[in-house]
Amino acid sequence: MLKINAISKTFFPNTVNEVGALNNVSLTIKEGCFTAIIGTNGSGKSTLLNAIAGTFIPDQGSILLNETEISAWPEYKRASLIGRVFQNPFAGSAAEMTIAENIIMAMRRGQSRPLRLAVNAAVKEEIAEKVRMLKMGLEDRLDNPIGTLSGGQRQALTLLMATWLKPKLLLLDEHTAALDPKSAAKVAELTKHIIEKENLTALMVTHSMQQAVDLPDRIVMMHRGQIVEDYRDEMKKRVRVPDLIETFNRVQKRELFDESVAAMLQQQYI
């Protein structure tokens, strides 16, 4: 279970570039819940994900994962609890190393790295078994450098790697955004399949509202570093893409309602 308590983060404080990326964000996600985060550019959705992953330490607030306070942990330490897939399909694997080597690294995510030979026949058999599930024919290419694969194939493998050891939390950062439509659909389907099968707790940032409607159990909408809408349970089942767009518009309208509007309406709204 993930419990985020009033975290805030300001980048470049006290400079002209000051950005209040997260503003007092609180969010609790139950075990086994697949949540999507949507929002405009710069709304803080990726920043929230990075705060959880430990890319930076928030200025304020706490992050509890599995009842453990992790907000002061460095990124690599959190990896023992968190599996991640990035937007860039090349970010999740080491291009010059083989598929097998990449997966073997993921098989010991957050664990010790002993001085034993990593690749052996038995392990390769185990890997081939699971890679076959992707139906991409990659099980025969385990000794090829992973850099020779397409973005879609790499992203599918990254997803497999992130979930090889069941993570307490899976973070997906617009992981289909950089793929061609066909690969994106395939990776999205795979995401849903794995999360359902393993009953994972997952947090997915997405640009695609259709994806937000189709895949997860809950939708959180962010704007200007704050959570502005939270569709869950029955509400989530009812929500459709036009509803999300309307909510976006409403949020933006509210944004445009400033003090000068208030003054003008005092004269005009009578």
Binding site: R250, Q252, K253, R254, E255, L256, F257, V261, A262, L265
Partner: peptide, 11 residues
């Protein structure tokens, strides 16, 4: 800004 809880402006 409380007025924003009562009125919506087209923007």
């Amino acid at each position: 800004p409380e007025i924003r809880e009562w009125l919506s402006f087209c923007g």
